[in-house]
């Protein structure tokens, strides 16, 4: 098994851990953190392919990860602000109770 496959396995599993957390946990903060983990898994993929890909000198993977981290930071800030705002209105962050848009 090559290191690239190991890296891809790591990212796949990390992605699934995040996915399960996002699907299973009721706390909005933990759901957000699951999403963050999924983003991190994608980043790991980028680095792995940059490291073992055909043209590492261009540094495309590294740059992509940098932008991705910036976007993740923005997403975390807005997401947590949303959580706080929702908490102020609903006095809860349990996702099961926040269903006012239900059809």
């Amino acid at each position: 098994m090559s290191p690239l496959q190991l890296c891809l396995l790591l990212s796949s599993l990390l992605f699934c851990v995040g996915l399960v957390a996002a699907m299973a946990r009721s706390n909005a903060i933990l759901v957000l953190l699951g999403v963050e983990l999924m983003l991190n898994a994608a980043n790991i993929n980028f680095i792995a392919f940059w490291r073992y890909g055909p043209n590492p000198e261009a540094g495309t993977g590294v740059l992509f990860v940098l932008f991705s981290i910036a976007v993740a930071a923005a997403e975390a800030a807005v997401g947590l602000a949303l959580v706080i705002a929702v908490y102020r209105h609903q006095k809860t962050i349990r996702l099961a109770s926040i269903n006012r848009l239900k059809g």
Partner: peptide, 11 residues
């Protein structure tokens, strides 16, 4: 640490 291991120090 994984990024360090992969050689992407800046990341």
């Amino acid at each position: 640490a994984f990024y360090l291991w992969a050689g992407a120090e800046f990341v």
